[in-house]
Amino acid sequence: MAETTKHPILVVDDEPDILFSLRALLRRDFEVYTAESGAQALEILKQHPIHLIMTDQRMPEMTGTELLTRVQGTSSQAIRIIFTGYADIKAVIDAINHGQIYRYLTKPWDPDELREVLFEACQHYDLQVAREKLLRELRQPLEAGMAFVQGLREGRFGELNPLGQAECERVCAAIRDLLARAIKVEPGESESHEHPV
């Protein structure tokens, strides 16, 4: 990825020392935003196009998994990562199983591993965005193609033999299928992805 387009990421932890430290580690590779609470994090998400959100599990008021569940309900497409101490592992496993989390890291984390995970997650984000863009771009030509095939079927360009009719049906179904997927990823309609853990 080019130096100039660092991914904007959001780090959430109630301990300022942790935020300070993570910002120092990540500032060279990412555009780092930080929040000291779940509420603050949601506020930042509204104002900035965040690609990745990474939160501590154990926080007063709103826990990490609670925050990520809320994020999942917004239009944000940000990849969700949690880091946690040992004792919270059960809540985190539940969250993973409900598809709310892309990855979890244990605290204390290994700095190199953390960077790798974040890069990988951002790549995942890029792929996801590229896929959606492609599908969106396909929509217009697909609709044009659909109109044409429909015209063919209705005999607007001359009578079709039965073989041609059947072929038209087939192509129609295929295009309809693709269109359905393109519509599904229209921005605003959040789709629940299945992420590998």
Binding site: D17, S21, A24, Y86, P108
Partner: peptide, 25 residues
């Protein structure tokens, strides 16, 4: 043990991280 683990975990996390930053920079 639980109290210790909880209290020590955060400082260990950021000190380890700070060390990595220090080394790199």
């Amino acid at each position: 043990a639980a109290g210790l683990a909880h209290e020590i975990n955060n400082p260990i996390a950021f000190v380890t991280n700070n060390l990595a930053v220090l080394r790199r920079d």
